[in-house]
Design a binder for these strands. Structure first.
Lengths: 373, 373
DNA sequence: TCCAGCTGTTAATGCGTATTAGTGATGCGC
DNA sequence: GCGCATCACTAATACGCATTAACAGCTGGA
């Protein structure tokens, strides 16, 4: 005679596996250890406070858990209003695009290291754009709530959803400056100071007229660089008029003729911003080459960021490096603070300094005497 | 006088867990729509089957949900569903090492894509080696049980723990051939056929004596290549004696003299295996260069795999490419099958073919007439 | 002897959702 | 007008864990 199947049994059968098969619950551990589920929770919760558990019981429970290979269910943990030691990583493009160049890899290096150091595992929310796990729901970002907190990569997260998370007090940290949803925590590179420093160094080499080449984009990363550039000019008491060359398509607008024109006008150094495409720098380099010029002999060049990888064999540009791994690590650190939720910084924002890269494309302006001293 | 804080209130305050803040639950939606929570669940669950909900009620619920901005709690959803739609990715080295070259990036490309397509998110278990989240427990691999199933990268997973998982019926797929724990599912590249094909092509170019250069390693990837190589010789009816040159340190043992010796003995083609370090291929290339020889003019070279990235500017070696992204995708596919648990393949193993790469380092042997036809 | 005060453990409950057994109400056939 | 389906929905329960009130056993002071 067959027992009427319990709900439990039925569940365990067909859709099966993830559930019952081999995954022990606290209840099983408890049974094996000869205690109650609550005791197991107390022991494994590892709370020092208020934990009045005898050494013996504790050991029994730990042994049992070990033998069964018990691992807490993250969803249950989370639901019970505790933490599950998971940090989410959310990007609205593929985290691992086919082309390594466009990936967040450098950041992830730091993210992984710091997360590991702090005892967190990472959840990669997939296919945020391509219709992955979250494609069903109209609120993909919401999946993030499964984790204790979430890192946001890229600028494409919809503001509304994001605001929602922030307002709900869900810990989120955006990688890269981002002002939009008020109160959003972010970690960014200090483009302003770094750009200023580059300009100051050029000035101290003797350059008196410097031009910034930038693309036509209002991203914070661009405007910050421009601000730093202008500050640098000001500090060095150099003219700011016509110092910024802005073009929607530098490859077209930045001709060798234009370049010679500048040189004739007394410009001796050029600074380009780094963008995803590297368009500004690429255009600048091309124009210089086509004009038959050479840096740093005929003019000085600097890049506010790292060169695109396909130009890796070119001489190393003077400029600065963005410490991406460090940014990633910093973001995790901040996120961990928010998750802990104890002493939330009033302005949950972190700026990381970039490191100056001497490089080989800048020197004294042509015709200048060797640097004094 | 301060009210004694209720549990509820305390929770909502400091750590600000997923909870209370203002986020509506199904219960609230239900109240607003004048129905029961269960009805809300049924409507929003979007199940066609068995859902006997009137059009009117359905609309009411949807309206209410919309007005409140209801969003399901993923933790609760997953708890109730007895699955969490998470696939683990476990490696015993950092998943994102500082050096991109040593990373699993190419695999992850495929893993992410396929996981997204199937609605899974990924859990990256951090610091599996460096003492991350799981360093405490003596059984780091156990953390994998947190997910519905787990992908294993790299060959360093301890057999005992692994066997444990497999025996428990926990879905695991190893990326790369692996026989050790009986019954372990894996996905690997078909090195045997691919290597054989390379040899056959060389033979059909007219080469009669071919030597394989390999490192002193017993990894399946190495032995498979050798097997394929030997099979290739056999098929082409070429001599197998002294055809395999095995060295613990090819950079030392593979001298230009040795090379000339071989050539003098009638060898016209060399095949190197690909390894992490690329040692064999590197040594071979160096020896050829130092001997003042050129491929394919003086001899033919082939590489059983992809060249190390730092040799990217060298002529493209003849050989085959390992479809890493495809391997990753295949692994996820297999893992998903195991997780679903319905029709588990009896032999949960998948071989993926490599694609032949014509390259530019192989041609007819010197002195041979042009290929007939 | 009795009770206050510990200590160590458990029973009970809640988190938000999915699922299923069950309940009225209605319609249908005869 | 009486069963009997069917329909539309609700009540109840489970999911796995954390948390807390409560309880049993014990000690020591009065």
């Amino acid at each position: 005679m067959v027992e009427e199947p319990t709900k439990r049994a039925r569940r365990g059968r067909a859709p099966a596996p993830a559930g019952r098969t081999g995954r022990p619950r606290q209840a099983e551990v408890a049974r094996l250890a000869g205690v109650s589920q609550a005791t197991v929770s107390l022991v494994l919760g590892g709370k020092q406070q208020g934990a009045a558990i005898s050494q013996e019981t504790r050991q029994n429970v730990l042994d049992a858990a070990g033998r069964l290979g018990y691992v807490p269910d993250p969803a249950a943990r989370r639901l019970a209003a505790a933490r599950n030691d998971l940090l989410g990583v959310f990007s609205f493009t593929a985290t691992f695009p086919t082309d390594v160049q466009h990936s967040y890899y450098p950041f992830l290096v730091g993210v992984e290291r710091e997360a590991a150091a702090r005892g967190y595992d990472l959840v990669l929310f997939t296919g945020s754009s391509t219709g992955g796990a979250g494609a069903g729901g109209p609120h993909p970002l919401n999946r993030a709530r499964l984790a204790d907190g979430c890192l946001l990569l890229g600028r494409h997260a919809p503001v509304d959803e994001l605001r929602r998370l922030v307002d709900d007090g869900f810990p989120v940290v955006h990688l890269g400056r981002r002002d939009e949803p008020e109160g959003l925590a972010w970690v960014g590179a200090d483009y302003v100071s770094s750009s200023r420093e580059v300009v100051e160094r050029l000035a101290s080499l003797g350059h008196r007229r410097i031009v910034l080449v930038r693309e036509d984009d209002e991203a914070p990363a661009s405007t910050d660089r421009e601000q730093g550039f202008l500050e640098g000019l000001r500090v060095a008491e150099l003219p700011e008029t016509e110092a910024v060359f802005r073009s929607a398509d530098p490859a077209l607008d930045l001709t060798p003729e234009r370049l010679r024109q500048w040189l004739a006008g007394g410009v001796t150094a050029f600074v380009a911003e780094e963008t995803d495409s590297g368009g500004a720098w690429r255009a600048l380099s091309t124009a210089v080459r086509e004009a038959g010029l050479k840096a740093p002999r005929d003019l000085s060049l600097a890049l506010l960021g790292s060169p695109p990888p396909d130009l890796a064999d070119a001489p190393e540009p003077t400029g600065f490096d963005i410490p991406r791994a460090q940014l990633g690590a910093e973001a995790v650190r901040l996120l961990a603070t928010l998750v802990a939720g104890e002493d939330v910084p009033e302005r949950p924002v972190a700026l990381v300094a970039c490191t100056y890269r001497p490089g080989a494309t800048a020197g004294p302006p042509p015709g200048a005497r060797p640097a004094p001293g």
